[in-house]
């Protein structure tokens, strides 16, 4: 049932045409809007908790580790041990490979 629904229905061309039609409808709604709207003084400036935006462009942009900070911070009990396991020592790389090989050998011996 599901393969009739998804696999045969999927066509990128149709998707693009429908997206363009949707964009056209959105544009028509946009045209309905009030043309007499005036630009205010602060339009286009970043909103930083009501403070005046700083002059230096580097202070405006919030990127890198600050993006999704909350998400990674909430998962720190899971992520920190994982990050710590990537020690960067060659011995550990080999150790992981030997361990995996031993586990796979046991798996194959027991289950096949």
């Amino acid at each position: 049932m599901i393969d009739i629904l998804l696999k045969d229905m999927w066509s990128p061309i149709v998707f693009i045409i429908v997206s363009l039609l949707t964009a056209l409808v959105a544009y028509m709604f946009y045209r309905i809007g009030d043309e007499g709207y005036k630009r205010t003084r602060h339009k286009g400036e970043p909103f930083i908790s009501g403070n005046m935006p700083p002059k230096d462009p580097r202070m405006i942009h919030v990127g890198g580790d600050n993006v999704f900070w909350g998400f990674t911070h909430a998962l720190r009990k899971y992520l920190d041990p994982l990050v710590k396991a990537h020690t960067g020592i060659i011995n550990d790389y080999v150790y992981w490979m030997v361990i995996t090989m031993a586990l796979v050998l046991i798996y194959v011996y027991l289950l096949i």
């Binding site: 405006i60 942009h61 990127g63 993006v67």
Partner: peptide, 14 residues
């Protein structure tokens, strides 16, 4: 999105 926002978006930093 994180890479795109951090590296490409934002004001020009020269």
């Amino acid at each position: 999105g994180k890479i795109f926002y951090s590296a490409f978006l934002g004001p020009d930093q020269g």
